[in-house]
Design a protein around this nucleic acid. Structure first.
Lengths: 243, 243
DNA sequence: CGACGCATTGATTGGATTCAACTAAGGTGG
DNA sequence: CCACCTTAGTTGAATCCAATCAATGCGTCG
């Protein structure tokens, strides 16, 4: 945790050397604060920076013609916002800060340079996007084939596992700064139904929610209820390779 | 089309040289036939080959504890099955042949070697996976926020656009070798409801389906009904760069 | 305080599922 | 060559999960 969530996350999978870590830290020296509800990136934009969340929560979202919104991913500390625009050119969705966020702005060119002399980093970044893809597949399953109860339980399990990866879970408790409206936009439900479903989860003592903090008294029980296995997150802890 | 769908697809985006094309063709010399309904890759597998569909349709799918299935992607000629397992290690989902498929088996090691001396190819492969990711985001929106009617219309629009990319659409007509059951598994609906919804689409003359062939008399009208814009497919035709 | 965002509750509606039966098409084997 | 069986598509009726519409509580903040 000494180096922040990004390195914590990448170190769990890639053979990062001390020198890689130093390079990453140097890249992330331009950290700005984005207030809640502000777009970090808007649809159609062609950013010349790559963005990494250092602190706070954000969401990828798409808006339909009728005004309905669908959140397609939650971004937590350590997550890249747009590793892809360097290649795809423009954003096909927006990213909005859900809380006040501290975001690192990395010039695309510098990242390009770093990854082209291919060290362990390229693979680590690849890995990050591939895990994102795995998460997306699971989200399709979630909205496609689980009922509201399992769906929300599953989402909470996922966020618990991901927050744990970056060291933000303490005693099965972590900050969940989402409104029920946002949970609804992520699960394809309405806020009203999210409310009723959360009540069911609470009444069964699977979750406790108080002032933006989620507590999961029995992780195993919640995972059972959700049908959650974290296999798609491809978590595998490795040691940090010395210089 | 002279070189098959994979090169056709990659050439629309990357600066492929003649030499790149030759390399790709050489890589794809081991083409095998997989019968319909057979798994090309199973969940949990750790393949030492990377697979590309040359002919036929396949589907990525996940199975839930209760037996429900969710298709999370359709694979058509030119699509990679598992560009990611080289990095993630194991398959977190299965891939099944929907029709008899001709599949190229590329040894992972050879692809690694090819991409590590980074030519235009690396970027092209990156691009392919990033588009897949964009498609997945749209699928989340599809099952999360569109009703059955728009949902199926949107899926058909997408497949039309993707089939067009690899030159498999002729006069707004293309092979759609999917059962209504499979359409249901892809859209998070039941086969019964897919049936009724297809009837509505037919009655409005938005689609015609006969013996595994889909005809879209008025592409604009169907896209309008679906709220479809292909922006997330990141299609952009470029010229082939000469050697 | 009043306004606003968010959570909560009730009543009602509706889209999609479920269960079940039935038809059509295709393949197989006696 | 037809009886038989399987698979895919179709239709109807009943049911249910979640949406919709609407109102209320409640804490916060300018």
């Amino acid at each position: 945790m000494r180096h922040g969530p990004l390195i914590a996350k990448l170190a769990t999978v890639a053979d990062l050397r001390e020198s890689d870590v130093e390079q990453l830290i140097r890249l992330c020296d331009d950290v700005r604060t984005v207030p809640a509800r502000r777009d970090i990136l808007s649809e159609g934009e062609r950013p010349d920076h790559v963005h990494v969340i250092f602190e706070g929560w954000a969401a990828r979202y798409k808006t339909l013609p009728n005004g309905a919104q669908q959140i397609v991913a939650f971004l937590i500390p350590g997550d890249f916002c747009d590793l892809h625009v360097a290649i795809l050119g423009h954003m096909d969705h927006g990213i909005v800060a859900l809380t006040s966020c501290r975001v690192a702005y990395i010039p695309s060119a510098e990242l390009d340079a770093l990854t082209s002399d291919h060290n362990g980093l390229t693979k680590a970044l690849w890995w990050a996007t591939l895990v994102d893809e795995g998460v997306l597949r699971e989200w399709v399953v979630n909205v496609g084939r689980r009922d509201a109860y399992e769906r929300i339980a599953h989402l909470l399990c996922e966020m618990h596992a991901r927050m744990q990866m970056v060291g933000l879970v303490h005693e099965d408790r972590f900050a969940l700064p989402l409104t029920q409206e946002q949970l609804a936009d992520a699960t394809g439900l309405t806020a009203v139904h999210v409310n009723r479903t959360l009540q069911r989860l609470r009444s069964k003592d699977l979750v406790e929610i108080a002032s933006g903090t989620l507590t999961i008294p029995d992780v195993g029980a919640l995972r059972e209820a959700a049908g959650f296995t974290g296999n798609y997150l491809h978590i595998q802890r490795r040691a940090l390779v010395p210089r």
